[in-house]
Simulated scan of single mutants.
Amino acid sequence: MNKTKNLNRDVFVRVDTLMNELKISKALAYRLMKEMNDELRSQGYLTISGRVPKAYYHARFFGMGVEKS
């Protein structure tokens, strides 16, 4: 595997990851992926269809790095 593919795996989450980690259908995974990309786009970020940054996915679903008081 080349360096670019390794970087891509380390940085982005794809639909299959959502399906496996969240135990959801492919259709729902695609809908959630689109919603996250729409949110990122509205914040001014460039997006890639079918992929979202791993850090954003974890923050959005699991609240990683966000402390609630």
Rank of each mutant, 00 (worst) to 15 (best):
V11N: 11
K68M: 04
K34V: 03
Y57F: 14
L7T: 11
A29C: 04
S25M: 08
T17G: 03
S25D: 12
E35G: 03
G65D: 06
A27H: 04
R9Y: 08
G65Q: 06
R14N: 05
I48F: 15
K23Y: 05
Y45K: 07
D10R: 02
N20S: 10
M33H: 01
M36C: 07
K5S: 05
L18K: 00
A55I: 07
N37M: 07
N37W: 14
K54A: 08
G65P: 00
G65V: 06
D10W: 03
L40R: 04
E21I: 07
F12V: 03
Y45N: 04
V52E: 01
A27K: 05
D38K: 14
S25K: 09
Y45H: 06
R14L: 07
L32M: 09
V11W: 11
M64H: 15
Y30F: 07
F12K: 01
S42R: 09
D16V: 05
G50I: 00
Y56N: 06
N8R: 15
A55Q: 03
L32T: 01
T17E: 11
R14A: 07
L40V: 05
A59C: 12
A27E: 03
R41I: 08
R9S: 08
S25L: 12
G63N: 06
M19P: 03
K54W: 08
R51Q: 10
H58Q: 14
S42I: 12
S25P: 14
I24K: 01
Y45A: 14
R60N: 02
R31E: 10
E21R: 12
N20P: 05
T4V: 03
K5R: 11
R31L: 04
E39C: 10
S25T: 15
I48N: 14
L7A: 10
Q43M: 13
I24V: 03
A27D: 04
G65Y: 02
K54H: 15
N8S: 15
V15H: 08
R41T: 11
L18Y: 02
D16A: 07
E35I: 08
I48C: 14
L40Q: 03
F62E: 15
Q43S: 15
K3G: 07
R31I: 13
K26D: 09
A59K: 09
D16Y: 15
Y57K: 01
L40M: 13
K5G: 01
L7N: 05
